[in-house]
Design a protein around this nucleic acid. Structure first.
Length: 658
RNA sequence: GCCUCUGUAGCUCAGGGGUAGAGCGCUUUCUUGGUAAGAAAGAGGUCAUGGGUUCAAAUCCCAUCAGAGGCUCCA
């Protein structure tokens, strides 16, 4: 059995131990997120030497071959049958299994109501109980057209199957079919490749739901210029317990939604008057963000990066030269006209950094040049795309651009990857996949194909030399070059794209960058674009959800909450808090009216790592009583002992609290 | 941008063609309490905004703004 993502075989995987490096595998290609979930690895770094060790976890079988896949596929057909009874005039589109469930797209005469879904769900249970066989038949395209004569979407699919599938550039991507398979259960027949369960008896009427997610709009064939259909999602499992688990996980994800927590913890807010997609950082969010920034800034300085600072706008010609303007005009704020010049709110930092590079004559002795900036950029994202902090219109990138000689490229690239891994590791983010994004077949790219190949090969070679398992995904590149993305899987097993490293031969060409080589000839440098966090906003949004707001102590906006037992202990609490602040700890005193239990509850809900309770006993003995947000009561200790403990945890970026 | 849904007190939400409800929070009073909510009283709302229908609109309709779930997009 092979992992569909990396093509590493299961027997190979079994031979691996945590202390062995993985063989590399770069010939896998996949476009489906379903299959790509099946190969995960966890890395384990020794912080100092940055020596990488990999472990692979792998499922036993491909999703497409699994029983769940057939169950979900069959469920989709059962749902379509019930929907056609509810909406006899409905046109059916497609209904595939997806991760955790299935969907079916319909063209409906009116919006679906919750009553409709309740009816359909009930009807589905009935159909399942009817013990209907799934019968497969092979028919000719003409027969198929007769069967689906009232279903225009199916006719379109049949015609395409018969002609052989063709992509948007007219390249044939599938053989012309002379037979078409159709599946029938009960009264419903669908054009379908299968596979299905043999009989609806194999479906569990108590282990599915179509009401866990509201109906949604979806374009026919994913094309925004075509019909908007109604997509109904379902989730289906083998047992009711699995369904319950899944619904529970959804609840958990909702509960720790960074938009909810961000409000509750006072981290950030939005104002319609400022504009949508433009986050406002409140003091507690800003200190968290500032702490991250200061730390990364220092790590980067240690790695030989030079901080630079550039303005928020730039002349439009700068972005015409870089190519950003022509390629992304739709998703930029309109140019600002001033006198007879046009300016753009900067959508990317690279052109500004390039101009800094160009401001001096560079010798090969100066390279590599590494410019780093927390640069705020603005992109006019489609309004429907905006989402909390994870998709905004103004955000700050932990951006850096490296200008290197071709000889230095590989080592520099590897060093960037090591730095990225160090950063994630220090934050306790350890579950990753690495994705090599290659050039799109379409027209969203610039430059010379040979240079693209060179850049892509450099990335793959670096991955191999680092022993970094990776997979290739076509069409995921930036327009100016291929990239390596780090895909992070959080505690709820959700995937997020975080850091990115890109190799770029094109912008140096476009901006005619040069350095003087040893033989006194002017050569062209190669650029590396990189951002471990990507967007600070998005990254913090992900951190909030991953940690459920309970940040490691070094990042916690408030690290210590003083809880005086009675009002007469306020002075003592104030004095302690002042001393904590002198030691660099972020401490506050809760002088509210609540009793001690209430204050503890509040501090816990605020995810404050340490609570120091002070009452008569503490004043008398000159102690503080420590309680953790995790519920442990560590009892009385001297202030010095607590400060030593807190500083040790903070300085080591420990995830623990004691 | 497109489809669907939502917008009522600071927050979470109930209600619903005849001038507004709960819990939490907030204020005050009592309580000074030792490890996940002490008690009582009180304040607080042009029911997102603008228009329309109606004797009467928070309620129905339209538009706008904002939010949610998807789709498309993501340098």
């Amino acid at each position: 059995m092979f992992c569909p993502t990396c093509l590493l075989s299961r027997s190979d995987a079994q031979d691996l131990t945590t202390q062995q490096a993985l063989p590399t595998h770069d010939n896998a290609r996949t476009r489906t997120t379903v299959t790509s979930r099946f190969c995960f690895f966890v890395y384990d770094t020794h912080l100092h030497g940055l020596h990488l060790v990999w472990r692979l976890t792998m499922s036993d079988e491909r999703y497409e071959d699994s029983r769940l896949y057939r169950i979900r596929h069959s469920m989709a057909h059962v749902m379509a049958e019930a929907m056609l009874e509810r909406f006899p005039e409905a046109k059916i589109a497609i209904g595939p299994p997806i991760e955790d469930g299935f969907y079916y797209d319909f063209d409906l005469p009116r919006p679906v109501t919750d009553e409709d879904l309740a009816w359909v769900e009930k009807r589905m249970k009935k159909i399942i109980g009817g013990a209907h066989d799934f019968i497969v038949r092979e028919v000719s395209p003409d027969e198929a057209r007769e069967i689906f004569k009232d279903q225009p979407y199916k006719i379109e699919l049949i015609n395409d199957l018969e002609a052989g599938r063709v992509d948007e550039n007219g390249n044939q991507i599938a053989e012309a079919a002379d037979t078409i398979t159709v599946y029938t259960q009960d009264t419903f027949t669908d054009l379908c490749r299968g596979p299905h369960v043999a009989n609806t008896k194999e479906l569990n009427a108590k282990a599915f739901s179509i009401r866990f997610k509201p109906p949604a709009g979806a374009y026919w064939r994913g094309d925004e210029n075509r019909e908007q259909l109604t997509r109904i999602y379902g989730t289906a499992w083998e047992t009711p317990e699995e369904l319950k688990d899944y619904l529970h996980r959804l609840e958990e994800a909702k509960r720790r939604d960074h938009r909810v927590l961000g409000d509750k913890l006072g981290l950030f807010t939005f104002s319609p008057l400022v504009g949508k997609g433009l986050p406002l950082w409140k003091p507690r969010g800003a200190i968290l963000r500032d702490t991250l920034e200061r730390w990364l800034r220092q790590v980067q300085i240690d790695h030989g990066y030079d901080p630079v600072v550039t303005p928020h706008v730039g002349n439009l010609d700068l972005y015409r030269t870089s190519g950003h303007y022509p390629y992304y005009a739709d998703s930029q704020y309109n140019p600002i006209q001033v006198d007879d010049e046009e300016f753009l709110l900067k959508p990317m930092n690279c052109p500004h950094h390039i101009m800094i590079y160009k401001s001096e004559m560079r010798s090969y002795r100066d390279l590599p040049v590494r410019f780093a900036e927390f640069g705020t950029v603005y992109r006019y994202e489609q309004s429907g795309e905006l989402q909390g902090l994870t998709r905004v219109r103004g955000f700050t990138v932990d951006d850096a651009h490296l200008f290197v000689t071709p000889d230095q490229l590989l080592d520099e690239f590897k060093d960037v990857v090591r730095l990225t891994q160090y950063v994630f590791d220090a934050l306790g983010l350890t579950d990753f996949r690495a994705r090599v994004g290659t050039r799109d077949d379409g027209d969203k790219w610039v430059g010379d194909e040979a240079l693209w190949d060179k850049a892509t090969n450099a990335i793959i070679q670096a991955c191999e030399e680092l022993g970094l398992p990776h997979y290739v995904e076509e069409g995921e590149a930036a327009f100016y070059g291929p990239k390596l993305d780090f895909i992070f899987r959080d505690v709820l097993k959700r995937e997020w794209q975080l850091g990115t490293v890109q190799v770029d031969y094109n912008l140096p060409e476009r901006f005619e960058l040069e350095y003087v080589a040893p033989n006194n000839v002017r050569e062209r440098p190669v650029m590396i674009h990189r951002a471990p966090f990507g967007s600070l906003e998005r990254f913090i949004g992900i951190l909030i959800e991953h940690f459920d707001g309970a940040f490691p102590a070094w990042l916690a906006p408030v690290q210590v909450m003083m809880i005086p037992v009675a009002d007469r202990h306020f002075d003592y609490a104030d004095r302690i808090a002042a001393q904590l602040k002198q030691h660099g700890l972020r401490a506050e005193v809760d002088k509210g009216k609540a009793r001690i239990g209430g204050k503890i509850r509040e501090a816990r809900e605020q995810r404050i790592p340490w609570m120091l309770i002070v009452g008569d006993k503490d004043v008398e003995n000159q102690t503080v009583s420590l309680r953790l947000r995790t519920d442990e009561d560590l009892g009385a200790m001297s202030l010095e002992a607590f400060i030593a403990l807190a500083q040790r945890i903070i300085d080591t970026h420990s995830m623990a609290l004691q």
